[in-house]
Design a protein around this nucleic acid. Structure first.
Lengths: 227, 227
DNA sequence: ATCTTTTAATGAACACCGTTAGTCTACCAC
DNA sequence: GTGGTAGACTAACGGTGTTCATTAAAAGAT
């Protein structure tokens, strides 16, 4: 059945052309600027044809973001070479913010827009979600757990999940504010770089049993050219 | 010209009925659920009539949110009775998050949606914006400045604007994550109360010259029944 | 009391949007 | 060849924000 393979290949190719057309509109103008009709026009198809390949607009956009966000995961996982969990946490946070700001609309879609609660994760998804070698969140939480186990954090901070989510909240806050308010004339934002360093320093120092360790870690990172 | 006054009163009354109808749809179902036609139906007017009173849908929604957010400002300003700037900062943050979560859609509209950059603040606005007795942000920044002047923060933290925005980023992060992801099956969020306390503790402790002061302050607040 | 100006509200339309039902057609397995 | 399948198409439905010419009524001026 070579022809069957070919048909499958063709199908995938069409889907990819759809997703690429969608991406082009999306990155430059955001979700609302992507209309099924515009996508269809771009690839010289009829709007209805898109529904052969995707359930609806939301699923289409989600699929596109999902693929593109593999890049964030891959970039994050690269940090497994960093031995010290504190340094790993710091670099994860910095990378996360940077990525979000370089992909504003993707970030908005993934982390600032509620997803329909109908799409539940499969068992396979659940497995991935908890594997630090496959999932960025799990990777980060693993670093937190290591730090806790090594007694790096204050003794009252034993809940890795809560600590992870608090750190996430901090970096998400900086990212989200930059995305939504960077050109808001009602607000005079301090330089982004300063805000990034501040939030990372403050969060980590506030969690560390020995706050001085932050500066040692940063000095070491600078020495290694990783900061 | 008594009749002129009456006409003005009537106009204001219609505007208010529009805003109230809009609010009702908005709080329960969000921005997208509010359509000009639905609002018009609710007050038994024609859709076009709304454009006599408001430039467009966005301005209408913005005006509604603006009014409702007076409540946040008023609630924040109440904290001027708290003498210690550190405690004031802490309570501001807690109140901010609480308010955001009790008014999810309003918060989303005000702080998670970019505003059209065409509407510049007037000179009067600019005056208000910098008056701690009228503006919540200025009030908060003033507390930060006090804390800095009193030597409460680490010596390298001298930029009140940056510190304010970093603290804001933290509380915004918690609020925004709760709003967008509270019913996300892909995420197991720690209890909200725990995340609130954690972020406030961590942020403040990370900034304080003497981290132990956080616990003293919290103890004092608990004694006074303010926490 | 009549005439003019102003203004809120209307009806009808425009240009979009996401989505669907029914149809056509090219290909595949038999 | 025949029947079935699946991708693409045409046409439409019901919705959206918004505009514009027109009405009707009230206000002000003479």
């Amino acid at each position: 059945m070579a022809s069957e393979d070919r048909r499958a290949r063709e199908k995938v190719e069409v889907q990819e052309r759809i997703l690429n057309a969608a991406r082009e509109l999306f990155v430059s103008q955001g979700f609302d600027a992507v209309s099924m009709r515009k996508i269809a026009d771009a690839i010289e198809y009829t709007p209805a044809a898109l529904y052969v390949h995707f359930k609806d607009k939301h699923e289409l956009m989600q699929e596109m973001c999902r693929r593109d966000f593999g890049a964030l995961t891959r970039e994050t996982l690269k940090l497994s070479v960093v031995k010290c969990p504190i340094a790993r946490i710091y670099l994860c946070g910095a990378g996360y913010i940077r990525f979000g700001i370089e992909h504003k609309n993707h970030y908005r879609m993934m982390f600032m827009t509620p997803h329909p609660p109908e799409l539940l994760p499969t068992d396979e998804d659940r497995k991935k979600m908890n594997d630090p070698d496959q999932d960025g969140y799990a990777f980060f939480r693993h670093a937190v757990r290591e730090a806790i186990d090594q007694g790096k954090f204050r003794p009252e901070y034993t809940d890795a999940e809560a600590v992870t989510q608090t750190f996430w909240a901090g970096v998400h806050g900086v990212t989200a504010i930059e995305i939504t308010h960077c050109s808001d004339p009602w607000l005079a934002l301090a330089p982004l770089a300063a805000r990034i360093e501040l939030i990372l320093d403050v969060l980590l120092r506030g969690m560390l049993a020995d706050p001085a360790e932050l500066d040692q870690m940063k000095a070491a990172l600078r020495k290694g050219g990783m900061l």
